[in-house]
Design a protein around this nucleic acid. Structure first.
Ligand code: SF4
Ligand code: SF4
Lengths: 143, 143
DNA sequence: TTTAAATTGGACAAATGTGTCCGATTTAAA
DNA sequence: TTTAAATCGGACACATTTGTCCAATTTAAA
């Protein structure tokens, strides 16, 4: 479903949502520790997220990462997926047909369309904020 | 979601369901043409499906491939997925946590669990026969 | 028995995804 | 001004997936 990089990216964003009150920054090292991902690989992922403007990175001493913009309520899973994996999960559907439509459907269309719509709805309507709450309460976990 | 190999495998099975009345065989070349996949790669995939006993292969002149067993109604998408991709799609869920459960869930569990169950239900309850009907009627397509 | 049609399986090649290393650069603080 | 703490970015390494090539084998038919 998602690439490993994208899984790490989502976890990183959820972690950052819990540390990003009032411009407080955390280092790459801390992020990687909390989401249990290789540090150098996490670095690449955070760079992608920074280029997509969903995280803000600050270089130099006392630098680090924080969520960009005012609030994690405005950042949705879909933003992260697009930044890291692109739109293939939406565009290349179940059987990976090059061209499909309601008048030229693949054989699974009738049975799969609802699942695809549910996935897209989940990705576009679930905010990082939604997910960070239970982590901060200790009711869900990133590793 | 699925590997390319698995997509080809599903298409091949759906195509074979339309050609496999009464032990009639089709060649690798024909299968690859109809599902628009590279012939040599398709060969590897059909070999996997043959080892999983969902297709029967016959070597030599007048040989070829046909569905194994009596009917495509007994072969489900899940059988094909397991034969080619294994059970990762079921075992490694959305965020790829190593260990998760209702008492140790990842942050998306509440929102994603239903989608996962819907996908598994779709894979386990959809038979190749279900899918081949609309193709034979010209109402859906494999390319 | 010979030939042609077909799958099989091993080795290889290319592309992508995952992960590492390290020097360059930036910034805050001593 | 110097130093230490950080991210950045390019090059590389490794694993997996995707795809190709070809000789070996099997089988039906001439
Ligand atoms: S399920 Fe529908 S949308 Fe998805 S590939 Fe098939 S025809 Fe296209
Ligand atoms: S959604 Fe639920 S089942 Fe899937 S990884 Fe998260 S906790 Fe596990």
């Amino acid at each position: 479903m998602l690439s490993k990089a994208c899984e790490y990216g989502i976890k990183a964003m959820i972690y950052l949502a819990g540390t990003s009150q009032e411009g407080q920054r955390v280092s790459l090292n801390l992020v990687a520790q909390h989401i249990e991902s290789p540090e150098a690989f996490t670095s690449k992922i955070l760079q992608k997220l920074a280029k997509a403007k969903v995280v803000k990175s600050v270089k130099g001493a006392k630098g680090g990462f924080e969520l960009n913009g005012s609030t994690s309520k405005e950042i949705f899973l879909w933003d992260i997926v697009v930044a890291i994996d692109g739109t293939a999960i939406r565009d290349d559907c179940f059987l990976g047909l090059n061209y499909c439509s309601r008048s030229n459907p693949c054989p699974v269309h009738d049975k799969y369309e609802k699942i695809r719509d549910d996935i897209m709805s989940f990705l576009m309507k679930t905010s990082v904020h939604d997910l960070s709450l239970t982590v901060q309460e200790g009711k869900s976990f990133l590793s």
